[in-house]
């Protein structure tokens, strides 16, 4: 059985919009690593400097609302976040996550309440569930088409795979 991974939790409230994830003034920065240093600057100033690869973001309602800027999920991915749990996601942000290979999972209010900011949870490697102390949060599988994109590592890799399979 694959080893379980202990991972940190970064918890946010409702309506975290893409301007808060990465503000407009930083979008001109051509270096995504440099830009990432300003992620979540307004809602959680220590996030960018302290988040670790594999950490999980927990959002409230309507996570990622606002502009379509793909830099929002991209700075999170650059900082090592590949799993986001939220009560709900804004549509464009949700699609952008999938297209970048980040897994967005919707959770219930009770599950949101179990997750404490800066706590440690156990993430099953196949990401079928998260364990929070003695509670288990099941992660609903994605539709097969979406899982194909996620497994490829994102849409670009998926489109390349498709192109190559058509060439053959």
């Amino acid at each position: 059985m694959a080893e379980e991974i202990k991972t940190g939790v970064w918890k946010f409230g409702d309506d975290i919009d893409t301007d808060q994830i990465i503000a407009t003034q930083y979008l001109v920065n051509p270096d995504i690593h440099d830009m990432s240093r300003y992620a979540m600057e307004i809602p959680k100033p220590n996030f960018a400097s302290s988040v670790k690869t594999g950490d999980v973001i927990v959002g409230g309602k309507n996570f990622g609302c606002g502009s379509s800027r793909e830099q929002a999920p991209l700075v999170l991915k650059t900082l090592g976040v590949t799993t986001i749990l939220a009560l709900s996601f804004a549509r464009i942000f949700y699609r952008n996550c999938i297209n970048l290979g980040i897994r967005p999972y919707e959770i219930s209010t009770a599950e949101y309440d179990w997750m404490k900011d800066q706590s440690e949870v156990i993430l099953h490697p196949e990401k079928s569930y998260i364990q929070v102390e003695d509670q288990v949060i099941p992660l609903k599988p994605f539709p097969p088409f979406v899982e194909k994109i996620l497994s490829a590592g994102g849409l670009i890799a998926h489109v390349i795979n498709q192109y190559n399979s058509q060439e053959k």
């Binding site: 379509s68 793909e70 699609r95 952008n96 849409l155 489109v159």
Partner: peptide
Amino acid sequence: SGIGTTEMAS
């Protein structure tokens, strides 16, 4: 509808 940059490339 609005989409992101990766999606637009596709």
